[in-house]
Design a protein around this nucleic acid. Structure first.
Length: 805
RNA sequence: GUCGGUGUGAUGGAAUUGGCAGACGUGACGGACUCAAAAUCCGUUGAUGGCAACAUCGUGUGGGUUCAAGUCCCACCACCGGCACCA
């Protein structure tokens, strides 16, 4: 037997798979069921892969390989999400074109991925920075613009005082710039926005059609943040003005003791000449506007506010005259930017009322002392002090009051969402140019589709401008253009799209990556949509996953894609931590590079360990000793070729173990319980070694079970054993349920729930027979000697529990 | 604060969903092979007591349900992740 030379074995088979295009997916194979497995395509950073990437890729690679053996036409593609800031920053710092940086990084990532032996269909490799790709990203944006889903608006952006540049939220850490540590302030900039809020309800509802893990569904629902309530108009005393408030507790209207406006509320301006303390109000507004993100999110913040002296609002249910305040605990961007305050039944209003000595009126009884603490429970309370609502439950009161408000024309049912529209502009170079032109006469005009892709202009430097404009603002020749509509002088938009753009539809391009008449041909879209199984990180739940669902729904609405939802199943992997149980990071110095593992132990060992490390959906620390253990396992598998015997060597024990293993590995793999599937194969290996021999049929089965996890070594052993063809073209083994059952099983004898003994009984003994057995069996009777049997519990195949006195 | 998750040997983690707690791997200890080491192979390994058969205890804490609880219920603690003045 030759030594287990993993390096040459792995290179050999990787070449065979490449040369034969073993894992190429067909776009028109109607003879097989199709399965589309998707993993999040990587951002090709300068650091290369770390061991977190292969966890997800190996998991779906195992599933992809298994499904191929099951006879499916499997699409398992990969590509590069290559636009983005780190590349651009590297390019600026080292004066290299981002395109070159990207090329280098992609080459390195590709080499790394190939060395691990993933069964990707490399003919479908895509790159978001490729003009033939981003042509379609721009095309989708244009359709959104044409359908009124893209609009321009003044929005505050994060502005670094040091770098003089706009930052993404992710680059702001504790209120300072991640790179230079300078203060970050809010600066208003006109930005392109996408109306994702228009899809809020559907983004919640259609989750029912998917098979996402529950965690992802709830996180998305919470993020979208739907709430049901009412908008109610409070008249401003002595004027024609109204204050419209949003509340989820219209049932507490009788308990409203004041009204609060957000500091930016437009009504303040309108009422300016009636406000007695205008200076104090203006001062408060100024202070609120200066607050940085950091201050606003500070944990120990006390409520602040100023009354609008001389201004009173009229409660529409009881005509009570209540004071009006402004406070930054009311957000401009949510609801109507104004609230009615019910301190007895809202914690925030309570705090505010206590601080400023405002009255607290109980309207929901049965709770705590509302002078000491707000009572917010909606389940148990009964209405008090509430006119015609008194005596009702909170739920009944809600219905009745809304009917009342609607009848009187002072209020209406209203649903609100926390979800905000998507800020879609970046003042950066390395992104897709926004294909719009600004004309003095015609306004914003879309580029004709025939002019797509609008290619990024070449620039000398990629630094953003002094005032935070995009680097493209310096490409004067590129900017100047003719208006597509009137032909007059016009200028191109200089902002680019965010990194999320290209990844919002990439799975569609995989279906038909070379199509130049559409983002993918209708046939390909019809065949492959939706993605059957998408695995990725939890960190993408509320951004990428939601964004791409939104884009897909839009494409569905305009008839481009055939399904409402892009992904049928979504699963998520846990993080791999450093050996010291901390998050892996360069600064902590605990990063493991997969190259080192591949070189020292081989790709098969890396793959096996990545799956054996722990429960797939949980985070687990890396352990070099664990890698070693998997390496030993594969060496034992390698050694099995010595145990292979000709002819009908038969062991009833091994046969049963094999059938059980097939059942277990099949089941575990589909449930992503890769760690226990591998443990099963390890235990089976131990059995085989104990027996000292294995016949050909059993060896074939064993190798096939291990193949998706460790594809190289199993291909090699298949060949060494002289079996026909390649293992990757065989069928997944089936087991005979009859052969997994034991004739005899060991059951436990308990006395009053405590294990006292074990006996062998026939496996098919039923409950009554077991009860009879308990009365006559020597082992059992010896244990119950001299005691009175109260009860016998028999669980077939498991145990006998005898309750005695 | 709130939503979600986790808590099991020295250690990473198993436990067919209420039925033998600790599979499999690592480490440690003992042994074989070796001049020796590495590699490999075999054995032991939750704790306490006992020469032993065996007994008692044991899944974050405290209670409960049950013939039987790591698993179900109630209360709490710790850690991790998301959101965070969303009315």
């Amino acid at each position: 037997m030759q030594e287990y030379n993993f390096n040459s074995i792995e290179q050999k088979w990787q070449k065979v798979w490449d040369d034969n295009k073993t894992f190429k997916a067909s776009n028109n194979d109607t003879t097989k069921p199709k399965t589309f497995f998707l993993v999040e395509f990587p951002y090709p950073s300068g650091q290369g892969l770390h061991v977190g990437h292969p966890r997800s890729y190996t998991a779906l690679d195992i599933l992809a390989r298994k499904r191929r053996l099951d006879g499916h036409n499997v699409l398992y593609p990969i590509g590069w999400d290559a636009f983005g800031l780190p590349t651009e920053n590297f390019a600026i710092k080292n004066k290299i074109h981002p395109k070159i940086v990207t090329e280098n990084n992609v080459a390195n990532f590709k080499r790394q991925l190939k060395s691990i032996g993933f069964s990707f269909d490399w003919d479908r490799e895509i790159n978001t920075t490729d003009p033939s790709y981003y042509k379609w990203t721009q095309w989708i944006f244009l359709q959104m613009f044409k359908h009124g889903l893209a609009y321009k608006q003044e929005m505050p952006i994060n502005w670094c005082m040091g770098c003089k540049v706009g930052l993404a939220n992710e680059e702001v850490v504790n209120g300072v710039c991640e790179r230079c540590g300078s203060e970050v302030v809010q600066k208003n900039k006109s930005q392109w926005m996408l109306k994702i809020t228009q899809y809020a309800q559907r983004l919640i509802d259609d989750l029912d059609e998917t098979d996402y893990i529950e965690k992802v569904k709830t996180q998305q629902k919470n993020w979208i943040g739907r709430s049901e309530g009412a908008e109610v108009d409070f008249a401003v005393d002595g004027t024609d003005e109204k204050i419209r408030v949003y509340t989820t507790r219209p049932d507490t209207l009788f308990g409203a003791t004041y009204v609060v406006l957000s500091p930016e509320h437009p009504l303040i301006e309108k009422l300016a000449d009636k406000i007695g303390n205008l200076d104090a109000v203006k001062e408060y507004q100024l202070m609120a506007s200066k607050k940085s993100d950091f201050e606003r999110t500070e944990l120990t913040k006390e409520k602040t506010g100023v009354p609008l002296e001389g201004i009173y609002a009229i409660d529409p249910v009881n005509d009570a005259k209540v004071p009006v305040w402004i406070s930054d605990y009311v957000l401009t961007t949510y609801g109507t930017g104004a609230i009615m305050a019910v301190p007895a039944h809202d914690t925030r209003d309570f705090e505010f009322a206590k601080k400023f000595g405002l009255p607290i009126i109980e309207v929901v009884g049965g709770g705590k002392n509302i002078q000491e603490e707000a009572f917010t429970d909606v389940e148990t309370g009964i209405m008090v002090n509430s006119g015609f609502l008194t005596g009702l439950s909170v739920e009944e009161a809600k219905k009745k009051i809304i009917d009342f408000l609607e009848e009187k024309g002072v209020g209406t049912r209203k649903v609100n969402f926390k979800l905000r529209d998507w800020v879609f502009s970046r003042q950066r170079y390395w992104g897709e140019p926004i294909p719009l032109v600004k004309c003095e006469k015609c306004g914003w005009v879309p580029l004709p589709e025939s002019e797509l892709p609008l290619v990024l202009p070449e620039l000398e430097s990629f630094e953003p401008g002094e005032n935070g404009e995009s680097p493209l603002a310096k490409a004067y020749d590129w900017i100047k253009t003719a208006c597509p509509s009137c032909g007059g002088e016009a200028e191109r938009e200089t902002d680019t799209m965010p990194q999320w753009a290209g990844s919002s539809w990439y799975f569609l391009r995989y279906m038909d990556p070379d199509c130049d008449t559409a983002l993918a041909s209708p046939e390909a879209l019809k065949y492959w949509t939706p993605v059957d199984w998408y695995n990725g990180g939890m960190e993408h739940t509320t951004l990428h996953l939601l964004y791409s669902r939104f884009w897909h729904k839009f494409l569905y609405d305009i008839g481009v894609v055939p399904t409402k939802e892009p992904y049928y199943k979504r699963t998520s992997h846990g993080m791999i931590l450093g050996e010291n149980h901390e998050k892996m990071s360069k600064s902590r110095g605990n990063v493991v590079n997969p190259d080192d593992i591949v070189n020292t132990y081989g790709a098969d060992t890396l793959r096996t360990y990545e799956m054996f490390i722990g429960a797939f959906d949980q985070s687990t620390p890396w352990a070099t000793n664990g890698v070693e253990g998997c390496f030993r396992f594969l060496k034992r598998v390698w050694g099995m070729q010595e145990l292979l015997v000709e002819g009908d060597v038969y062991s009833a024990e091994l046969e049963k173990a094999m059938h059980k293993a097939v059942a277990k590995v099949t089941d575990d793999t589909e449930k992503m319980k890769f760690n226990t599937a591998i443990a099963t194969l390890m235990a089976l290996t131990n059995d085989i070694y104990k027996l000292g021999k294995i016949n050909k049929a059993e060896f074939k089965t064993f190798l096939t079970l291990l193949n998706p996890t460790a594809p190289h070594i199993t291909e090699e052993l298949w060949q060494i054993a002289g079996f026909e063809g390649q293992i990757s073209q065989q069928s997944w083994p089936v087991y005979d349920p009859a052969k997994t059952v034991d004739n005899e099983v060991e059951i436990v004898i308990q006395i009053c729930g405590k294990v006292k003994s074990r006996v062998m009984i026939p496996a098919d003994m039923d409950k009554t027979a077991m009860e009879e057995f308990a009365k006559t069996n020597e082992t059992v009777t010896a244990l119950t000697e001299g005691k009175e049997i109260v009860k016998i519990i028999a669980v077939p195949g498991k145990l006998l529990n005898i309750v005695v006195k």
